[in-house]
Amino acid sequence: MPEAAVIRKPRVLSRVFSAVRLPVGDPFAVVGLVIYALFIVTALSAPLIAPYDPTEILYTENYDLASDLLPGEEGHVLGTTSLGRDIFSQIVWGARSALLVGLTAAFMVAFIGSIVGLLSGYFGGWVDALLMRLADVAFGIPFLPFVIVISAFSEPSIWNTVIAMALVLWRDTGRVIRSQVLSLRSRGYVEAARVSGSSDLKIILRHITPNILPLSFLYGSIAIGWAILTEASISFLGFGDPDAISWGFMLQDAFNSQALARQAYHWFIPPGLAIILVVSAGFFISRGYENLLFPKLGR
């Protein structure tokens, strides 16, 4: 028996790893992966790449406030804000906030959704009824207004925004994983494990969870984009973390400083493009991933 245990472990691990394999066959997905790699490198090495502190108020050589400089002036690649802050540095640091928000929200959504789906699908009965009514409630809550109210009334921080998002967004993951578990539960090998006396916990962990991980991963990767977009909206509306430089915060700053009327395109175009690039890269990856998981849908 001990030998069997030794052999089993790597098999489970390799199943997990093969479940989260990357969709490198799909050209869109490859572009998405490259953008993500750049995004992650930028976020991690922000202090090395950014020429200035993103919140530092800068002065020119004549000790004037370096406000509203155009791209290229005084060596500022993308110019400066009305408060004299370097726009390029803010873009670079914004990648860090976006990565943090995207990954933590995605992890929480995938985690809560998978647990709900597993319990609901495996145990059925009142557990299922209760959890699925909870999912109905989550579908009935207007997502953005909910996140706005929670972010505004709690201590302003990225974490409260992320928690508010996860409290609602698990609903899609939960429902999809539940239906997957329902079909897995009646498969022969699960039946066999049950007959041979495996406990519920063991069946769930060893036989069902490895098979739903790809779906959790897929829904998590979709949640990254949603989380980044939502955080941008929250910051734009002024309910974000005042200490974090995010792309949404930059857009709020530009909007409130009349950048639109002054046609300061160099200020409000780059943060929007950064968001589009990262979020659509996420879409590309999840599409490629979907094709890998469900080849029938691939087109």
Binding site: L251, S280, F283
Partner: peptide, 15 residues
């Protein structure tokens, strides 16, 4: 089309 889904709506409005 996918990129339009990735846009923050308020940013599109600003542009």
């Amino acid at each position: 089309v996918l990129a339009t889904r990735a846009m923050p709506e308020f940013w599109l409005g600003m542009v």
